[in-house]
Design a protein around this nucleic acid. Structure first.
Lengths: 209, 209, 209, 209
DNA sequence: GATGAATGAGATTTCATTCAT
DNA sequence: GATGAATGAAATCTCATTCAT
């Protein structure tokens, strides 16, 4: 019954079924600012509309509802991250270096866009997110899986456990590091220490000699 | 203005300022069942009240509100986990074994009480969670910190990073493993593999030789 | 799904499924005042609620919606009229006098409660009205039909046309007289002339000698 | 601020300030069809536009709004009726016959164009209509008043009441007969009985001997 | 004349929360 | 402890109306 947010596969925000790009950015910026500071159900759509200088109806027309608005805005950011990651991997040959890069890009992204992480932490339930993670960000997910598969084939990564478990270590650690970092409000400390952190992670997932 | 849930430090659910114990268990059981299956804001208190066979007012009187009800119920479960952990650590001398035990108890707990994890995943925002984690479960948290400090002192654990970072690895990994395990609905697989998973974690946090 | 207005057969406003009588009167008074001055769709329920000093939800709970509120309020007034009519007919034996009385009571009612007529004229479509007339006011309608049937049996009324046609003359004329009277804003003129008007009506429906 | 529908005094729909005649007819036909079947506020202009195969803006440009569209369309039909009436009165000399004719033309018109009556009954409030009746159809109204004045002068009509009261009897009865006739869905019965009905009306308004 | 987008208003629904009994 | 009633807030949806192209 409602227009549904278009699937975004590329980084540049695609036009949301006819929504003016500039307007769209204003809306998603407002979403980021408001939902990152308050819990999902403490945010009213009318304030998002006002902050974005659009009418409530515009939001409903293009996004369909509160939850869809949130996830559409979030997906746009995560696509940005995925694209950034693909971009940064270019030209790196060494496997470990590739993995280190994915780790660094992720930490770096959230350090520079803390609101994206805050939004996830304050307005997205883990359960709900997991569903979206897989349906809506095959690029981000897929990029990781490809890198991991490569590592297993070359005998570099631990093969005593399922491949997805390796992903759990990477995601579990990186996301937790982002969370606590933001909670403690620590400037650049996270990326500055990225290498130390990565080496710890690496020891966990590398095949023990 | 609201009655506030009493702090629970021990494992046995203390009487919540006069709430009949049996009634309390019925309420918290209902909370577990309902909030674990639906998102926080998709659950209405009236259905919780009906499921627990109490009046809406009883909930308000003893818990104060929707969020307080959720966290009070959750805290009761987590105290159970903390208590279990303390209990299991008894008599284990070796440091690594003590840590392995904490890891195992945590995985085991959520495998046996998947609703507790589901409730967190479907009804608790990370942000909100973190606040409660620290204020309301010093026992669980403190137990971990003590074990870690001990490891650092003995030169067993990695001392290139802050102590809290080690905790991030432990919590980040264990929680993520629980999440994906439940999502994939995999019976006992998680505890069966606990040792393999722990060894990976251990390599991450142990001081490299 | 909503509580539906209870059928009112008696004159005293019955308690509307638990709605406090005093509150009910405040609401229906507000309805009368507001809907009589403005067209149905120019009235917003929130102003009715405010005028009646109740919340919007109270209205929805007890009446179910805008249209139901209007008709429930209207039915209460018309039941009053019906009851009044039955009451006034008591003790009058002569057929023509009985009919004259019904005519007079009707004109008199609307002269004294012009808002009821105004409400009908500004907020009720003839079509919608007719449906309610028959379903919801059997008393008012039935009283007339009984009087007419009696007149036909006694050979006093015109029997060249269907009985319902006689009713059309009575209702058509009386209602039109009320309308124009109110439009021209003429104090008591209508009831003062009721006899002259009735004699004209009588000549229309009596059996020609 | 709005374009206002041009006053139509003649029967042929005048070009509405530049609106193509054929288009206009399509629009007003759609209005008749749609508003006669549903209540005014249950009809959306977009469906009228679609049914008439014009854009919403055309309606706004030439009619000014929803209500204006309705009344403009209605006025066009009523002018048709007025014109028809004037036409039929030609060559009839006898006063009573002239009146009988107006009565018959009115019933006959609505019997043949039931949608016009249905539109009034389902989408026009009595109050709103009365205003338009007088401002917008001086021809229809005036024709009647002239005929009545004539009757009074010649001592044929009842002079115990105001002239307008006579009009109330004529309009009140004829309109009510039309209403119930359409409600009962009775083919030609109305015009077939027109004479009987008129004689009844005549007895009401004629000067009693 | 037409098309597309945006807006403001208000109907309706569902709840958390409060109050009184 | 329980029950019933009321309230405020916000989600959602549908339109009339306006504006720009």
């Amino acid at each position: 019954m409602n227009a549904v947010a278009e699937q975004s596969l590329a980084g540049q925000p695609p036009s949301l079924n006819g929504l003016n790009l500039e307007t769209r950015e204003r809306i998603e910026q407002a979403v980021l600012e408001i939902f990152s500071g308050r819990e999902f159900h403490k945010v009213s759509l009318i304030e998002v509309a006002r902050a974005a200088n659009v009418s409530l109806q515009t939001i409903y027309k293009y996004y369909g509802g509160k939850e869809a608005l949130l996830f559409s805005s979030l997906d746009a950011r995560l696509s940005e991250l995925a694209e950034r990651m693909v971009d940064h991997l270019q030209g790196i040959e060494d496997f470990k270096e590739r993995l280190r890069k994915t780790f660094w890009v992720k930490l770096d992204y959230f350090v520079h866009k803390p609101q994206v992480a805050q939004l996830i932490m304050s307005s997205v339930y883990v359960n709900t997110w997991r569903k979206h993670e897989q349906y809506h960000n095959p690029l981000l997910f897929g990029t990781f899986m490809k890198v991991l598969a490569e590592g297993r084939e070359r005998g570099i990564l631990n093969d005593a456990v399922d491949e997805k478990i390796l992903l759990d270590y990477i995601f579990g650690i990186s996301w937790r590091l982002v969370q606590t970092h933001l909670h403690r409000d620590q400037g650049k400390a996270l990326t500055d220490n990225a290498n130390v952190y990565f080496e710890m992670l690496w020891r966990a997932i590398a095949k023990p000699e």
